[in-house]
Nucleic acid binder design. Structure first.
Lengths: 253, 253
DNA sequence: GAGTGGTCTAGACCACAGA
DNA sequence: CTGTGGTCTAGACCACTCT
């Protein structure tokens, strides 16, 4: 009863698109992920071994391996040498991908809303210079926003951007996310380093977030880098802890 | 000045061990990581292209690719098609691997210390059953601990383990970490799903953590799975926010 | 011994960026 | 056009787990 299922065929492996832009390994991993989410591959069940899967699909083993590895990295599958590949137990099957309650609100029809508190072009102080990797005193764009959903305040967003972005269209900030605007300018985020913590809210923060003075806020500070490795944004955010949390999956490497 | 360095040779690629148990791609990625941390490869500098690197080291391209990919996943390198591979800017080079201030304390000589508050073998309630993937009413081991460093309380740890571990040696809990004990029993953690949040401390928690009643605590709840995909542990922890935070690196996939 | 994943090779063609 | 990373093939040998 420890290993309830033998290897499953998973018939849904027809119609691979070899000419389109979608990589084969991605097509495979998507199909397997779908099979896990809809219960075709229940928790604990074993996958076919890599070689057999490759033969049956007419693909080479490295391609199959990469497809499976994608799902191992996502925390959906577990592999053991000499044993095989199994689906992870737990309510993994659905809903665990969400990163925050904010997205829950967004999905449930609550429209996110942003109020720009202030924008200012100033000079980088020591801390900003360090975080962004620029010279002290170089021009930076400092943005403070209040993010709400369904009329309820959720987070205070404090961001600093290097000189290149001082000409950003500030009017768009109330309509689009900062990352959305940067992407529209051709910037693609690739790496972010962040720290999550907590502290008591200041009186000002408590007022903005509509919570009792001195109660807890969840904090996150993050520096993001684009695809050339250059710092693009440094943000210090604080969230209403009853409306926001961070969810993640860790995989042993 | 945007691209300050051309590709660097990085001479330190001799003495590869082809017979030992350490994979070649790991030997390569370790050497590159070392070169980044000691400044041989400064932020923004470009690596040699994959083919040239492979030829010079006498390795195939897939092996080189895998080595580089390891560091891309760690957030140390960034790749662009048609451009090349570059070292990420920022103080990335060192010190960002630490996961928490707790480890800072540990490194600075403050010995971590654990006090077992209570251990109890009980029946799984609905929540525990759901998190651990066991039947409601099945036996579970419930452990509560207080973790300190240098005599200062840092975290309250509340853990629930399934039936298999009810015979764990509870005396060891004050001397070793829970994960350490599980590993000694042959259990290897592979996947963990966790949620980080914040809230006001209860009076009881405030007393244990030696903080003012009602001030903020950082919370983390986690379910861990072993290499067969089975849930092994469910924990609900709360931390003193002035002594603990979570640091992580995100990479766009 | 049989079956599995882990590693590695030596090529190939393609998509994209820049001069 | 050249140079780069992204994908893919068709094999090979090894280490590990279980029977």
């Amino acid at each position: 009863m420890a290993e309830p299922n033998q290897s499953l065929p998973v018939d849904l492996f027809i119609d691979l698109d070899r000419s389109g832009p979608v990589p084969l390994y991605f097509q495979i991993s998507s199909r397997i992920e779908q099979a896990i989410h809809d219960g075709t591959l229940p928790p604990g069940s074993r996958l076919e071994n890599e070689v057999a899967l490759g033969n049956r699909l007419g693909l080479s083993r490295p391609t199959i391996r990469r497809a499976i590895q994608e799902l191992v990295d996502k925390g959906l599958l577990v592999r053991r040498r000499g044993i095989g590949t199994q689906v992870v137990h737990g309510k993994v099957s659905r809903g665990v991908e969400l990163t925050s309650l904010y997205e829950d609100l967004e999905r449930s029809g609550q429209k996110p809303d942003t109020r720009v508190l202030s924008t200012e072009i100033g000079e980088a102080d020591e801390r900003m210079a360090e975080e962004l990797g620029v010279e002290v005193g170089s021009p930076v764009l400092h943005i403070k926003r209040l993010r709400s959903a369904g009329g309820v305040p959720i987070a205070i967003l404090d961001n600093v951007l290097p000189a290149d972005f001082t000409d950003i269209d500030l009017g768009d900030l109330s309509k689009h996310g900062l990352y959305q605007l940067l992407r529209a300018r051709g910037v693609t985020m690739r790496v972010a380093k962040q720290r999550i913590g907590a502290r008591d809210a200041t009186a000002h923060e408590a007022g903005l977030l509509d919570i009792p003075k001195g109660s807890a806020v969840l904090t996150m500070s993050r520096t993001a880098f684009d695809n050339s490795g250059r710092a693009v944004e440094w943000g210090q955010h604080c969230y209403r802890p009853d409306l926001y949390s961070f969810e993640m999956t860790l995989v042993e490497r």
